[in-house]
Simulated assay, not measured.
Amino acid sequence: KRILMPGVLVLCIYGVFAVNNNIFDVGVMFVMGWVGYIMMRNRIPAAPFLIAFILGPLLEDNFRQSMLMSGSDPSILFRGPITWFFWLLTTITVFAITRSTLRKRVPLS
Rank of each mutant, 00 (worst) to 15 (best):
G80H: 11
F85W: 14
V31R: 08
V94P: 01
I13N: 01
S75Y: 08
T90L: 14
D73Y: 05
L55K: 06
A18W: 06
I92V: 15
P45K: 02
L59W: 13
G7D: 03
Q65T: 11
F53N: 10
I38Q: 10
E60I: 14
F49Q: 03
I76T: 03
P107E: 05
W87N: 13
R41G: 02
C12G: 03
F17L: 03
V94D: 03
V19H: 10
L11N: 10
D73E: 09
D73F: 06
S75R: 12
D61G: 12
L77T: 00
S66K: 04
I23E: 07
V16Y: 00
G33Q: 05
A52W: 12
M39D: 10
N42H: 13
R2Y: 11
N21E: 10
N20I: 00
G15I: 01
V35I: 15
I23Y: 07
A46V: 12
L68G: 06
Y14G: 04
W84K: 09
N21G: 09
P45L: 04
P74L: 05
L88A: 14
M69E: 15
R43L: 07
G27A: 05
R2D: 09
R105I: 14
G56R: 04
R64I: 13
L59R: 07
R99P: 00
V35P: 03
L4N: 01
R105S: 12
S100Q: 13
I44C: 07
R105T: 11
D73C: 07
L108V: 08
Y37P: 00
G71H: 08
M40C: 10
L88F: 14
P57F: 02
R105G: 09
R79W: 09
V28N: 04
V10H: 03
M32I: 09
Y37S: 07
